[in-house]
Design a protein around this nucleic acid. Structure first.
Lengths: 337, 337
DNA sequence: TTGTACGCGTTATCAC
DNA sequence: GTGATAACGCGTACAA
């Protein structure tokens, strides 16, 4: 009826159902068995009064917020938002929620974001931090707040760190080109300060060697993950080695720049030059030609991280994969030689 | 030193600073002036003990969570995430945080999402809901929780609803094509059940008429916002009117499908046919040719919504723009005839 | 300007 | 299986 006369509390429910507040709490939380008759009486009162538990009071009593903190570089990025959505699906299903903060791949930002989420009293943290040092991360993990590390391998973090096999991904991309008959394959890396860049480069190199193709520094250019960087690097590569027949870009954004540079140079794709990207971001399929790339299972990794976080909370051990393997997505930007 | 022996509370600080708990509270919240000497003594104690206020207790006492709820169709969408980031920047600057939930453009989902955020006790709600009826929205807004409506105009919502002038956007796109000499201009709409679709169509029509070009149903096809839909609709359009020289797609995703269909039909873009999209999502610039489109000021609108929400909380009136105007972003997909 | 004492709504502990 | 009651940590009248 009239729910305007102040807030309905558990005490009101208890009075109406003629039981103690404790019993109401038990019915609602299902912690301890309650006689069926009492139970339904309580539920009836709850419905009639339209009672909603006060999350603040509950949190104060349990010292749990029901929130999981998530940190990624940039939540607007199509790349990270997929990971976040993986976390969310699991967390949501557990009746909890997520709080997202941006780290901007900057140590100070990341530190601040962590502090921020802590002050909000999140129950656990899922971190994708790129700038923070291993030591800082480990120190955080030593605290009492459960922390799960995503897309980053730190040996000392044990089973609390999930990672992607970037080396394997680099191999996948390169092997795909080799299998299509390519022998002169350029590679654009992200900044080599990123472990991901180095691992992908390593995979590229391994695949070449395994196929009996000599590795050459001349074919590798360090770039910056960005479209413009890919554009310029591709131009340099074309000047250095006009005989190149394929380019493996370290991410899709650089690949977009590569496509543009090739078009401007009058090289048709994939007829004259093939291109492979990395990430499989949303726009990869919209590029022209649609981009063959290496997909990272970000959604799955986010979900696994969430499961680990929840398990750390309820104490139940859970089996999740800790090393994720990328997958080749074949589209139109590669052609058989 | 040792911060492992239990939690530091405001009582510990008060004892150490030789003041009452109230005084500590005052210093921390700056509600009431405190003598400078006392103040610095308190701050010193806070620092020494590394005291962090308990957000739960604070919320229980103030009945404020510091959280602003945000609902969008899909938070992974590059489109909506921009709006969310607009909200976040303002909310964050105010020392608060956001909670995001997905509405999936489905009334039941939207209702559930709202209920969910309410149970988390958010202090205000920023809503981008497409399926929920006007009545349901108005009923919600009649409650005690401040609600700001985004990208949706409901007259009865008064100054709590922000909207984009889609009609103007449709005019912009069409006028741009007209100015470039085009006369036979097709238009692909989203589902006409969406007010946005109808408004953009209306703008298209107005621009034609204003330029003395007859409007023809034959040139308009209702589609579904999706790439595949745009692809098929473009094919139909080409069959109906092979003499068409330009297509205005109701959003960028359909425009991507249009580009593909045109390529397959052997019509070069923009030499034979020009294309304009709507939204300016992230991938618009990566399409080939890069897409001329109509940008929606989503970031700004999100920020304005956040400011309104905060103003509703602290009672201070604030001036914000309530009607937003889209803007033409000229790229490579349109050519002068 | 500062201190005292109570209330916020729930869960947990202990008794019955 | 159920009830009484003491925390939980902070804000805030009210008093001094």
């Amino acid at each position: 009826m009239s729910d305007t006369h102040g807030t309905v509390t558990i005490r009101d429910v208890s009075r109406r159902a003629q039981v103690s507040m404790s019993t109401v709490s038990r019915v609602l939380n299902g912690t301890v068995p309650v006689a069926e008759a009492t139970r339904s009486r309580v539920l009836k009162a709850v419905a009639e009064l339209d009672y909603r538990p006060n999350a603040f009071a509950r949190s104060l009593a349990t010292n749990r917020s029901g929130g999981i903190g998530v940190i990624v570089n940039e939540m607007t990025s199509p790349y990270y938002s997929v990971m976040v959505s993986g976390v969310e699906s699991v967390v949501e299903a557990a009746g909890m929620h997520i709080l997202v903060a941006s780290g901007k791949a900057d140590a100070a930002f990341e530190q601040r974001a962590i502090e921020n989420l802590r002050s909000r009293r999140v129950d656990a943290l899922v971190l994708h931090v790129e700038a923070l040092s291993d030591d800082a991360v480990l120190e955080l993990m030593a605290g009492d707040l459960p922390v799960i590390l995503v897309a980053r391998h730190i040996a000392e973090a044990g089973n609390r760190s999930l990672s992607i096999d970037n080396e394997f991904g680099g191999r996948l991309a390169t092997e795909h080109l080799l299998e299509n008959g390519h022998r002169i394959i350029g590679h654009l890396t992200g900044p080599l300060s990123f472990p991901d860049s180095r691992a992908r480069l390593q995979g590229y190199r391994q695949a070449l060697v395994a196929a009996g193709v000599d590795y050459s520094d001349e074919l590798v250019i360090e770039s910056d993950w960005l479209e413009e960087g890919g554009y310029q690097a591709a131009q340099r590569l074309l000047r250095r080695r006009p005989d190149i027949t394929a380019i493996f870009a370290g991410n899709d954004q650089m690949a977009a720049g590569v496509l543009q540079a090739l078009r401007e140079a009058g090289r048709s794709i994939p007829d004259e030059i093939s291109v492979v990207g990395f990430d499989d971001v949303l726009f990869a399929r919209y590029l022209y030609p649609s981009l063959t790339t290496v997909r990272q299972p970000l959604q799955e990794m986010g979900a696994a991280a969430a499961r680990l976080a929840l398990s750390a909370l309820n104490g139940k051990e859970v089996e999740v994969r800790r090393r994720f393997e990328p997958e080749l997505i074949s589209r139109q930007s590669v052609r058989k030689l």
